[in-house]
Design a protein around this nucleic acid. Structure first.
Lengths: 341, 341
DNA sequence: CTGAAAGCGCTTACAG
DNA sequence: CTGAAAGCGCTTACAG
């Protein structure tokens, strides 16, 4: 039988309450008592039962997810994943609220974060935009003992409890390797599409992509980045102009959203077989494009994994329990038509 | 406040014990009482607290993992992942035992399974070999109400609770797409290496691989499969013979283990840049080979994910709780040097 | 600074 | 067929 607090109390010759105080590092215990309890714990190999503790504490986890609103399919997929755990998590004494804020708007995000009551929420996960006001709002939550994780997009200037997302430089490098290898001996230009060069993810992906192309595929040349604001309409307009101007574009890399516009241009363009196309994030649109051969590869991050990982990390901080190493690494996934699951 | 069994009992005008009987579908309750309780449950929106129930039941999960012994790095990685959750799972009232059996040996596997006491184990996960004795041993466990999942390698003739692993036909197709695209305009032969054509995974991967090569890359031709018994020494011997005999081998696909032998041959061979090499499973050896450019791509399955998924599925069966859709799909992962994490 | 007792939301004998 | 009471492994007031 596994030892319980009762056993520890008996072994140490103290009451249950004292064991509890030591276990939870509550103040007002004599050094000598602490020592006795700790000796008993290690002698018996006591491991505390977290769920029994949570039952006694009537612990309920309340989490806030703050994510961008708008048409971005990846973000809507992220929202769907949050909804899925939300339904499921009633079993786990967990309550989840979703707050949606305008995308690319640091002030709006900061205002929403400032509106979160630290007494109400036991943890916050946020798709962050970099801005001083955001950093300050996150710092306020941390000061009030609310653990914070950033999701998908990090804020390096703020030391949060964890960043749950991919390494975007490596993602760009991965895209470039696929592009370069798929192009074989061909030479020519690569069109680069991003949402905005003010967004960290996209800047990092571009950096990684250009690094690899320049060093390993010198017969290829990257055109200046087209900024499509993650908006399908704009992407469509700018990209078709670009392809008209440059007849020797052999590859297209979309490091941002707005894939609907990209797909529109390339499917009209017909000769998709002759160009290699790499984009980010598996959505219903990019899946269809992979199937149709309009897109050759998708670099993906698993939004469901990110949501569940964020929750595990926040709970571990709250319960002061260790995480399982390896489970919380978000991978840079590659999808071809063949391994869509 | 969330309603509890107390609330349900009060609302239904019955005792706690009766509520419990209905909740757990225990026999010996009048239809009318069942109806009253069920009405109260749905009226209050009662959701049962599984961890409180497990505490009261002194429920301890005891799981057996049955895996192959031997030098196979993937299997040793799988074992390490089981060990990792084993350490961690003391917190979760979960005990895990690992049984190792000789690889490719259905009788030894069946004997081990037959030795598992159904009274002791609440669930079993097994890396299965196809054999009648194995199927019967698994059926015995199921008859004794022990849920069973197959790990990595399925036994289609046995209807188990779940198969936790990848679709190996799709994995083969994925390997072929990478091979074909990376080869660009080149034509020539592809050397195929497998462990054994008696093992289902390898047969399926081969099928998927050849399908895609034949239909989409007609300038490429697959050589007959080399069977290396997943043994580095043998793979090295047979593959180097094969490369000596065929001067026009432009690609190598290893659908089995024994990658150390493969890497040995190809690194000596020098001209690795001229051949495209695709293999399975990220291990310390294949990582190094990716880094060194000896291997171009690795098709991978996440052993840690598989272990954790198997545990979640078994627990859900035991607790009769729903699974979170999406979390249990094992993906066919693709690794290039750039997205190693 | 310490301890006895009640309680968290369930389940389990046992009595009727 | 049904219910009162004790108990699972913790924590929380409250009294001293």
């Amino acid at each position: 039988m596994r030892p319980t607090v009762q056993d520890v109390a008996r072994q140490a010759g103290v009451s249950l309450a004292s064991v509890d105080r030591v276990l939870n590092q509550r103040p007002g215990v004599r050094e000598k008592t602490i020592a006795k309890v700790e000796a008993a714990i290690s002698k018996l190999g006591y491991i505390r039962d977290v769920s029994a503790a949570n039952l006694a504490k009537r612990q309920i986890y309340r989490f806030a997810f703050v994510i961008p609103e708008g048409a971005n399919s990846f973000m809507r997929g992220l929202e769907a994943e949050i909804e899925a755990v939300k339904q499921h998590s009633a079993n786990d004494r967990t309550e989840i609220s979703i707050y949606k804020v305008p995308p690319f708007d640091g002030r709006a995000l900061a205002a929403t974060l400032d509106g979160l009551d630290p007494a109400r929420y036991s943890g916050v996960a946020v798709v962050a935009t970099e801005a001083v006001a955001v950093r300050d709002a996150l710092a306020r939550l941390r000061r009030n003992n609310v653990p914070v994780v950033t999701l998908v997009s990090d804020v390096p200037s703020f030391q949060c409890d964890a960043y749950v997302g991919i390494d975007n430089v490596a993602a760009g490098r991965t895209a470039a390797r696929l592009m370069g290898n798929f192009l074989g001996e061909k030479s020519g230009k690569i069109a680069l599409v991003a949402g905005s060069m003010l967004v960290r993810d996209h800047v990092e992906r571009r950096m990684g992509f250009e690094q690899v192309i320049r060093s390993d595929y010198t017969r290829l040349e990257c055109l200046p980045v087209i900024e499509g604001k993650d908006d399908g309409q704009l992407v469509q307009k700018y990209l078709s102009e670009c392809l008209r101007m440059h007849s020797d574009v052999v590859g297209v890399y979309n490091m941002g959203a707005g894939n609907r516009g990209l797909i529109e241009v390339l499917s009209k363009n017909g000769a998709s077989k002759e160009r290699v196309v790499v984009a980010h994030e598996l959505t219903e649109h990019t899946r269809r494009a992979l199937n149709a051969g309009i897109v050759d590869a998708i670099i993906h991050q698993d939004a469901g994994h990110e949501v569940r990982s964020a929750l595990r990390i926040l709970k571990a901080r709250i319960d002061k329990t260790p995480l399982l190493a390896g489970q919380e690494t978000i991978r840079i996934e590659i999808y071809l038509n063949e391994n869509l699951s």
